[in-house]
Design a binder for these strands. Structure first.
Length: 262
DNA sequence: AGGACGCCCTGTTCGC
DNA sequence: TGCGAACAGGGCGTCC
């Protein structure tokens, strides 16, 4: 499930593969993934252009165009992007293919179609239009604490709210709360600034650790619950077993012993 | 403002 | 064995 670390890895990957290539054709295989733009318009926005920068904000990617403007890309749950040097063996979940003059292709694949592609004048314009909060890796402790503490809802729901901070999904929110020993259903507004500061620090550490591990959970440090996030799995600190509960409409895994209920 | 749903979508897993 | 229900999950919309 692409969250900030996976999207950052995709950003680096695209940066290393598609910059500077001349776009010759956009082939929309499934219009369902286009958001507020049609295939023809997207085609005319892109053809003849080149990508000059790949920018990430939270879980959102922006492929900046030489002539200004950018293609936006969101991976939803199952989305991925890859560059193919030669002809690609077609996959039934390929949703959009961008051909380059140099013969390569950028393929956007998305099994469950929760992903989205659109066009924006700038990343900033898109971020404002969607009212996304600051990026989880960029936000200062001060701003994060202020924003998060102002919400009277479970801390888990606050971390998942992209308007508060952008980039955290269900899995990493569990890890951040486990690392800080905070129960997922404690109200954000009930946490002291000091503890919320700890959540901020853990958020940065967890996201960076996952990027460093190339998002391979097996390579995460010992003591990370994402190495085995399931009900009944042993607590990484040896304090019993993990438990599942629904918070803010999502399944949260936590350690009842390390993260005492409010 | 926030909670509780429902919907989108499809592959997997579970229960009968 | 086989079928359908439940589930997962990000984001958005609706109603209370």
């Amino acid at each position: 499930m692409p969250e900030l670390p996976e999207v950052e890895l995709a950003r680096r990957y695209l940066e290393g593969h598609v910059l500077g290539l001349a776009i010759s054709r956009v082939n929309v295989l499934d219009q369902g993934i286009l958001e507020s733009i049609g295939p023809e318009d997207l085609n005319s926005c892109l053809v003849g252009q080149t990508f000059v920068a790949i920018i990430r904000h939270g879980k959102q990617l922006f492929l900046g165009l030489k002539g200004g403007g950018c293609m936006t890309m969101h991976f939803g749950m199952t989305g991925s992007a890859c560059y193919e040097e030669k002809g690609r063996v077609p996959d039934r979940h390929d949703r959009l293919v961008i051909d380059f003059n140099e013969k390569g292709h950028l393929v956007f694949n998305d099994q469950r179609k929760f992903g989205a592609i659109s066009y924006a004048e700038s990343p900033q314009a898109f971020i404002e239009q969607k009212r996304l909060g600051p990026d989880a890796l960029m936000v200062s402790k001060k701003e994060f604490v202020e924003r998060a503490i102002s919400h009277r809802k479970p801390i888990k729901a606050t971390l998942l709210d992209q308007h508060v901070v952008a980039g955290i999904g269900n899995l990493y929110s569990d890890e951040v709360l486990f690392q800080t020993k905070v129960h997922p259903s404690i109200l954000s507004s009930e946490l002291s600034p000091r503890r919320m500061g700890h959540v901020h620090r853990a958020m940065g550490e967890v996201l960076r650790a996952s990027i460093d591990a190339r998002s391979d959970f097996c390579l995460l440090p010992e003591g990370y619950m994402l190495r085995d996030r399931s009900a009944g799995a042993p607590c990484p600190r040896g304090n019993g077993h993990l438990k599942a509960m629904v918070v803010g409409g999502r399944t949260a895994f936590f350690c009842p012993s390390c993260q005492p209920s409010p």
